[in-house]
């Protein structure tokens, strides 16, 4: 800076100006014009919308704008729910359904992951599996219920099969795509260091496919919840699905919605559990 090396000229030197001062009156401040288009967390907004929706729903019932038969107000649903808790039937129904979802989902998912892996690894398995999956996946499982009854009876086996088969195909597809999507260069890397086949599978392919497999779990868990209602069409005395079906048949709409509420809460709980699992397993992303 030449200013500092020159001798000061006290008379002509202008008063020191603060750096923030703009040089001329013609200048304008630069305005921020970015912003927006970014997802920012707004928890209160969701909560507020939720509260308003519930309040409006309750009010419409209280003010007799809508018949409580058609749309039971939240208070009636909670009352029905409370009744279920009080007489212990909620616990009994929930236990029955959770057992079916647990066993059915586990069986279907385990088989699906194995088949998906095989299809991702071996060309022969892929050549057989892809058309088979395309052909069998769209079959509505509910249409097969009479067959399940003939094959497996009306006990738990046919209920497990309904849920298991429902989650099997999406899991196959998710796992297959996940394995297929593992970067080839990582596999080549493993091979270039003489890693045995099984090690490549265990240490490279499996963790690499994990995000896709877990995303598949999210979908299959929801499908299991949907299918528990279908499964419990088969001679179920207890179960949230059986309860919902029964309430529907008897036109007890408050009970019906109470059961539906339990199902969605169950979905929420499972979703949260999966998010936690993802957080721990996929920390590296």
């Amino acid at each position: 800076m030449p200013d500092t090396t020159e001798a000061p000229r006290p008379m002509t030197r202008p008063a020191p100006q603060p750096a923030a001062q703009a040089p001329a009156s013609a200048s304008r401040p630069v305005r921020f014009r970015g912003g927006g288009f970014v997802a920012e967390p707004r928890r209160w907004a969701a909560l507020l919308a939720f509260v308003i929706a519930i309040a409006a729903w309750e009010a419409s019932g209280r003010l007799r704008l809508v018949s409580p038969l058609f749309l039971p107000p939240p208070s009636a649903i909670l009352l029905a729910l409370q009744g279920l808790v009080a007489d212990g039937s909620l616990a009994r129904n929930l236990a029955a359904s959770l057992m079916r979802i647990g066993v059915g989902w586990t069986l279907g998912t385990a088989a699906g992951v194995l088949v998906g892996f095989a299809m991702g690894i071996w060309s022969i398995a892929r050549a057989i599996g892809l058309p088979a999956v395309s052909a069998l996946f769209p079959i509505p499982k509910i249409a097969l219920l009479p067959l399940f009854i003939l094959w497996l009876g009306i006990g738990e086996a046919s209920k497990f099969a309904t849920i298991g088969l429902g989650v099997f195909f999406p899991t196959v597809i998710a796992t297959y795509s996940a394995v297929d999507g593992v970067p080839r260069n990582l596999i080549r890397m493993g091979q270039s260091f003489n890693m045995p086949w099984l090690d490549v599978l265990r240490k490279v392919v499996l963790p690499g496919a994990m995000p896709g497999i877990l995303a598949g779990f999210r979908i299959s868990a929801s499908i299991a919840l949907i299918l528990v209602v279908s499964a419990e069409m088969i001679g179920a005395d207890y179960g949230i699905g059986a309860f919902v079906l029964n309430a529907g048949n008897l036109m007890l709409t408050d009970q019906l919605l109470a059961g539906v509420l339990v199902l969605s809460l169950l979905g929420l709980a499972i979703g949260t559990a999966l998010s936690l699992l993802e957080k721990t397993l996929l920390k590296w992303r």
């Binding site: 260069n185 990582l186 080549r188 890397m189 270039s192 260091f193 240490k203 490279v204 963790p207 690499g208 994990m210 996929l282 590296w284 992303r285």
Partner: peptide, 14 residues
């Protein structure tokens, strides 16, 4: 014979 790769080829989870 060992490789060094252009794209590093590191396992992101390790």
């Amino acid at each position: 014979v060992s490789f060094v790769f252009q794209d590093f080829s590191l396992l992101p989870w390790r």
